[in-house]
Design a protein around this nucleic acid. Structure first.
Lengths: 135, 135
DNA sequence: TATAATCCTTCCCATCATGGGAAGGTCAAG
DNA sequence: CTTGACCTTCCCATGATGGGAAGGATTATA
């Protein structure tokens, strides 16, 4: 199968398949006499694994670690659990950060009249000016 | 004041100040005879505004729009409110997405023994295999 | 005053993951 | 045998930031 089919079956674009090969995440496939990459179901399976990991927010580097563990028959599941747990913690930190932003912005929007007057507490906040009215 | 002081007083690195100038977010400051950039308190005020907006997760482009509204005395606060509201919606979408990832990962981690046995439901999920045990 | 340390300047490169597109070779169907 | 769809490699762009080199300017110290 050519790279186009492999892309379609795995959900990973042909561009990205070549990129993953280039950075060593996947190994170089066989080539036809005319230099086309040839993939089989094993390779597509690997690509699907990568796609799923990326969808779950693992970085390419983390995905590589998970892939190595997946392909290592004698691996210990503890390592995988650690990677996943670390990733959960990182995601939760990010979520908390975004929630902090939302909270602040909602407060500002709530204070803002949103009419045609130039007075705007959102801009005042950005400019570092003290709030004039509590709520 | 030189760029170093302006950076210190605004919390924006000298590198980024030059970058913001380059992309037109801020205007080019005066230069000394020896080609040093010179900043005053007005410029620092602008940089603080930018810093605050970036901290709240606005993109540089959005920050530029807010900056223009801030500097436009006849602006309507409704425009600002719209930008902020859109940004809140985008943040909330992102948060929901991350929460979805966390939920899936927590489920997988919960199912994983985390011991030295090679059996690992997390990897099985990534590989697209059906789960064997409910919970 | 001479020299060293600290600043400033521009310029290039790297990140991370992805896409766009050009120039050119290959293959299959009509 | 032509046409269109595919493949190849190579370069460039994103967004926001940092690193670092090479060289000029200023400031502090010996």
């Amino acid at each position: 199968m050519n790279i186009g089919q492999a892309a379609e079956q795995s959900g990973v674009s042909a561009k990205m398949i070549r990129y993953y090969e280039q950075i060593g995440l996947i190994s170089a496939p066989h080539r036809t006499g005319s230099n086309y990459r040839v993939y089989g179901s094993d390779e597509v399976h690997v690509l699907r694994f990568i796609k799923r990991a990326r969808t779950l927010g693992f970085s390419v580097e983390e995905t590589g670690a998970l892939l190595a563990l997946w392909q290592d028959k004698s691996r210990a599941s503890g390592e995988v659990k650690d990677i996943a747990s670390d990733h959960i913690a990182a995601l939760e930190t990010k979520i908390a950060e975004l929630q902090g932003m939302v909270k602040t912005l909602k407060h500002l929007v709530h204070c803002c009249q949103g009419d045609n007057r130039p007075d705007c507490p959102i801009l005042d906040d950005l400019a570092g000016e003290p709030a004039h009215k509590g709520h």
